[in-house]
Design a protein around this nucleic acid. Structure first.
Length: 696
DNA sequence: AGGTCTTTCCTTTTT
DNA sequence: GGAAAGACCT
């Protein structure tokens, strides 16, 4: 195949400019992944570059996987061991090779802690601190992460800064003692080694002659530094990004890196991709109208050659419940017009918005999936099993030991473990080894079980071994006893991951397992099958990035929700606006925006004006008043509610006995009313004939 | 050590 | 309103 086929002039330029620094500003839907993969293929096939001299980094496993797949399709080569990966897995792969330069007690088989694990580490550090109740562990964790990712991290309050500094230090020591890194460390340590050990830097600079970075606008300070270090010598650095889609600054992403890049590499060739192949003209117009309000950006205007388009609509409903019905009915209507479930996506600013839709979809038998939530590998039962396997392979793994020593319950409590911990640190041995120094039958039994399992690893197949672990640890029995159907299914599903490992890793079972276990923390949900499933998708705008759908509903478009109530500075607002831009540009054919006057939230009604973004789109004068009428049970229920008098906060009422009062909360069929003394606040059935609304 | 009662939270979260 | 973590009790 001709690698320049079906590319426009700008895209061709981006593929062909193989030498020197190149920055591609790729608008939404302008074919950036296509450019990236064609360029890699071009480097290999036309220029003759060895695939192992190319480094391509992305932010998600999914993006990395997709890139590899596309390269395989273009060139028919095996991409399994190519350096096409996320920032984190690139760094992990590097650190496993160069572990001896990390310093401290780190070895090549370091563990990678996920968010839950590192929060546990913070809690462990805080355990004996006098200030442990003043500031939550999660807050410390966020600070730790920020200080590892953001430039000049500082806390304004000197006292807080002081205790933070202490926790930060001890947290890092705790990790080091356990041969563990958190996600941020992976990148930080890699950069540290490159800065400290020049020979190693030169080696990798020579290895990676061509570097490509996807979603460049999302790089943080350290990631930017990493790229600059690696590319400093050959300068063949190709970055693709879109300032307007930078929506992760709360995690340290610096949009300013886009500007800085051109300072660091003054001879950067700049290429703008503005032709959009995804959305209709009307949808693009809305996106352009909104993003125009951001001041701090390079002027860029997406255009399309698609002419026919369906106008995007904004609907305001009375309640959040009606909002869900509107979406439901619109989906049904469009299904009749030939759309199928997979064509629809419902997007919102905050995940809790999904609940309303879930309820309505279940009742009306609309197939759906909610994106996000826990990754398979982050589930408790899976992490427990991983901990068992780790401990069996490496008895000195204290973190795994602590995780499962009393899971399921073996009557090994906090006091016992504290004693064990003291003995272990006194004798400088692992917790597992310290069991010998303590007379505790439960611990001894546990130790024998683990050692017994250890003798079996290489005797039987990996799956049989895993079954044995499930049995001997009593874990499966414990799940069965508690009727944990989902968890039982998950621990069984984990077998397929173990089974796959045979094809990826080499050696005996112990080796295969050990290597697999080291890689698991960076694995996320691999089932990208769901993308094509015949279901409606519900997701946050953040989760929607990179995806596209024929029909998009942007719901809960209300001030306080979107832009979020936590938007304070002008730059916060600009980020919210970019989130909005990402949302709009996901839509191919139809876009519906909704808001409601009264939203049921946290058990009571709240009223917010429509989002300012609706006004910026020029849709405010364009409200479609639509009477919802579809014959479903839902609607019947709804009409019954309508027959009653609806009370909202602040309504003045009169009660036959208690006299005048004001509604102070609405709770389903019940309302709370503040009456004059001596009656006070009463909770009453809203439909009770004794209550009469006297205003409005 | 483990059950139950009470308090707390409720923006986004690629790894 | 509701889940989930923490406090409290035995």
């Amino acid at each position: 195949m001709n690698l320049l086929e079906d590319l426009n002039e700008r895209q061709k330029e981006a593929v062909l400019a193989t030498e020197g620094p190149v920055m591609v500003m790729a608008g939404a839907g302008s074919g950036k992944t296509r450019v990236l993969t064609r360029r890699i293929a071009y480097l290999i096939k036309e220029i003759g570059i060895n695939p192992f001299n190319i480094l391509a980094v992305t932010f998600t496993n999914k993006a990395a996987l997709e890139m590899k797949e596309r390269i395989t399709n273009l060139l028919g080569i095996d991409t399994k061991f190519m350096w096409v990966s996320t920032f984190h897995s690139f760094c992990a792969r590097f650190l496993r090779v160069e572990a001896k330069h990390i310093g401290g007690m780190y070895t090549a088989n370091f563990q990678i802690l996920d968010d839950e694990d590192s929060l546990k580490a913070v809690k462990n550090v805080l355990k004996n601190k006098s200030y442990k109740d003043d500031i939550k562990p999660q807050v410390f964790k966020t600070w730790i992460s920020n200080s590892k990712n953001m430039p000049d991290f500082q806390l304004a309050d000197p006292y807080k800064m002081q205790i933070f500094t202490e926790v930060y230090k001890e947290y890092n020591e705790y990790l080091a003692n356990n041969n563990a890194f958190d996600f941020d460390d992976l990148i930080l340590k890699t950069v540290e080694i490159f800065k400290k050990e020049r020979d190693i830097l030169y080696k990798y600079q020579d290895k990676f002659n061509y570097i490509l970075v996807d979603e460049f606008q999302d790089t943080n300070k350290v990631q930017f530094e990493l790229i600059c270090l690696l590319a400093a010598k050959h300068q063949n650095i190709f970055v693709v990004g879109d300032e307007d889609q930078s929506i992760y600054s709360f995690r340290g992403a610096l949009v300013t890196n886009v500007k800085r890049f051109r300072e660091v590499f003054p001879f950067t060739k700049l290429i703008l991709l503005e032709e959009n192949y995804r959305s209709s003209k009307a949808i693009l117009d809305l996106a352009n109208k909104v993003i125009k309000n951001n001041t701090d950006r390079v002027e860029k205007n997406l255009y399309t050659s698609k002419i026919d388009s369906i106008k995007p609509y904004y609907y305001e409903t009375s309640t959040s419940y009606e909002e869900t019905l509107f979406v439901l009915n619109k989906i049904k209507e469009l299904l009749d017009k030939g759309y199928s479930y997979k064509d629809f996506a419902i997007m919102y600013r905050a995940n809790y918005i999904s609940r309303n839709f879930e309820d309505v979809f279940i009742k009306n038998q609309i197939p759906y999936v909610i994106y996000g939530g826990f990754s398979f590998f982050a589930r408790k039962e899976i992490k427990d099993m991983i901990a068992y396997l780790r401990l069996i392979l490496n008895n000195d793994d204290n973190l795994s030991f602590l995780r499962i020593v009393n899971e399921p319950k073996r009557k090994i409590g906090g006091t016992t473990l504290e004693k064990l911990d003291k003995l272990a640190s006194l004798n400088k041995i692992s917790l597992f080894k310290a069991i010998d120094l303590i007379a505790n039958n439960n611990l001894t039994k546990f130790k024998e079980m683990i050692l017994d399992l250890k003798t079996k690893v290489d005797e039987i197949s990996i799956c049989d071994f895993y079954d044995l672990v499930l049995e001997k640890t009593m874990y499966l029995d414990y799940l069965k006893a508690n009727d944990e159907e989902d968890r039982i299914e998950n621990v069984n599903e984990f077998k397929s991951v173990l089974d796959e490992a045979k094809d990826t890793y080499e050696g005996n079972n112990s080796n295969i397992l050990a290597n697999l276990l080291l890689d698991l923390s960076l694995r996320t949900n691999t089932d990208d099958k769901s993308d094509n499933d015949e279901v409606v998708k519900l997701m946050s705008f953040h989760q929607a990035k990179g995806l596209e759908f024929k029909v998009v509903f942007m719901v809960a478009m209300e001030e306080g929700i979107f832009p979020s109530g936590n938007t304070f500075s002008p730059s916060d607002l600009e980020e919210e606006r970019r989130i909005c831009y990402v949302g709009i540009t996901r839509a191919e054919e139809r876009l519906y925006l909704t808001s409601c006057k009264n939203r049921l939230m946290y058990g009571h009604y709240e009223s917010n004006p429509p989002s300012r973004f609706i006004r910026e789109m020029g849709l405010l004068g364009n409200i479609k008043k639509k009477v919802i009428s579809v014959n479903t049970k839902e609607i019947v229920e709804k009409e019954q509610v309508d027959n009653k008098v609806i009370f909202k906060l602040g309504d003045k009422i009169n009660h036959k006995i208690f006299g005048d009062g004001v509604v102070v909360s609405v709770d389903g069929n019940y309302i709370k009313i503040a009456f004059k003394v001596p009656y006070g606040i009463k909770t009453l059935l809203a439909s009770h004939p004794s209550i009469i609304k006297i205003t409005k």
